[in-house]
């Protein structure tokens, strides 16, 4: 387990997450892609903290902030899904085209 191997695993998670976020049609699956990217980000952060930060507590603080960001993303995301579903019975990104015109 070296810093390089941890970061490569994190890069793979970010790559898969980016694929998911771009390719999925359903809102919730799209959010899963975003979450997976943040998962990779947390892993990279913990790798840096453990291998090259000498245990400075700010690194862990950053991970906690990212977790808070995840919670915000989930909550606002689901609230938007509920609002959109109420308005147009839609759960797909394609069905939202009002911003295009």
């Amino acid at each position: 387990m070296t810093l390089v191997s941890v970061l490569i695993v994190a890069a793979a998670l970010i790559g898969i997450g980016l694929y998911g976020a771009l390719s999925q049609q359903s809102f919730v699956m799209l959010m899963m892609g975003l979450e997976l990217m943040l998962n990779g980000a947390i892993l990279a952060m913990m790798g840096f903290w453990s291998f090259s930060l000498g245990g400075a507590p700010e690194g862990q603080l950053l991970a906690i902030i990212v977790m808070a960001v995840m919670a915000v993303e989930m909550a606002v995301g689901f609230a938007l899904v509920v609002a959109v579903y109420r308005k147009r019975q839609a759960d797909m990104t394609e069905s939202l085209t009002t911003m295009k015109h």
Binding site: L7, I8, A10, A11, A12, I14, G15, I16, L18, Y19, G20, L22, S23, Q24, Q25, S26, M29, M92, T93, E94
Partner: peptide, 21 residues
């Protein structure tokens, strides 16, 4: 299957992984 812009997404994912690596 509920995907759109599939090829583009695969390419973006691979490029992100390759670039970061």
């Amino acid at each position: 299957v509920m995907v759109h812009q599939h090829r583009f997404s695969i390419a973006a994912g691979i490029i992100a992984f390759a670039g970061l690596t």
